[in-house]
Amino acid sequence: MPPLASAAGSLLAQFFVALTRVRHPRPIHPHGVALAGEMRWLGASASGISWIDEPPAGAVAVRARLSRSIGVPAPLPDVIGLALRAEGSAGPVDIAFASTGRARFSRFALLPRLSPSAAWSSTILPYRGSHGPVLLAVRPLGPDDLPSDPEDIARRLRTTPWRLRVYAARPRGRWHPFADLTLRAEEGTLDTGRRIDVGRHTPPGATIAPWISALRDPSYRSVQGRSGARG
């Protein structure tokens, strides 16, 4: 395990534990919208990750949470987060997206957005497949005028589905679409206490580089342990 990544991961965990004391139970992404829907593959791919490349028969049930990362009041811009859980025969697959650019370098930079409708979002950190590292991303297809406030988003998405396309790419390569997402706001609730765990519930055929686990996992464990909620 790389010493520098381990040291940075430990510092991040301490920071998020301290932040949790002020913003309990979620130090970031404090307010969100609970979503549910389905994911349909577009066809076979060649990413090197079997979960992407081998389409399942029919749609896959998904649950998601759309949130504003820092939690600044709407309509101010914020980094948009989308936490996704796709069900599968081998267990759940958890993926976390955040609003970024889509070009070769901006895909690694967090970018605030006014609305989820404008938020191209990526995983920022890559998975490892049989052909090398792979990034995932989502692009909204419609509606193109979603509001920025979570309560307003929930009201809109209870009557109008949110459609997104899912992509895969090498870190500096072209984006290739492989699936479509359709999400609606869950009835009877605004937010959800469910959490995902991207370190444990990786897509079949994908692994995570040790330096990424060392950097990210301590924060996940510390925050989720203190909140009493698991993925």
Results as ranks from 00 to 15, higher is better:
L4Y: 06
S6G: 07
G9D: 05
G9Q: 01
S10D: 11
A13T: 10
F15Q: 13
F16M: 15
R21C: 12
R21W: 06
R26L: 11
P27V: 10
I28T: 10
P30Y: 03
G32R: 02
A44K: 11
S45V: 06
I49K: 03
W51Q: 03
W51H: 11
E54C: 13
P56L: 07
P56N: 05
G58A: 13
A61M: 11
V62W: 03
L66D: 03
S67F: 08
S67Y: 13
S69I: 14
S69G: 07
S69H: 08
I70F: 07
I80L: 05
G81E: 05
L82G: 08
A86W: 01
E87L: 13
G88C: 08
R102Q: 11
F105T: 13
A109P: 00
A109Y: 10
R113F: 00
S115N: 06
P116E: 03
S121E: 01
T123D: 09
G132E: 12
G132F: 10
G132Y: 09
V134H: 03
P140N: 00
P143V: 01
D144V: 14
S148Q: 00
D149F: 04
A154H: 08
R158Q: 14
R165A: 09
Y167N: 04
A168Q: 10
H176W: 03
F178P: 04
A179L: 02
D180P: 07
L181M: 02
L181G: 02
T182E: 15
L183N: 04
T189Y: 00
G193Q: 13
G193V: 14
G193W: 03
G193K: 14
R194V: 13
I196S: 01
D197H: 13
G205A: 11
T207Y: 00
I208L: 15
W211Y: 09
I212H: 04
S213C: 09
Y220V: 14
R221Q: 11
G228L: 11
G228T: 12
G231T: 05
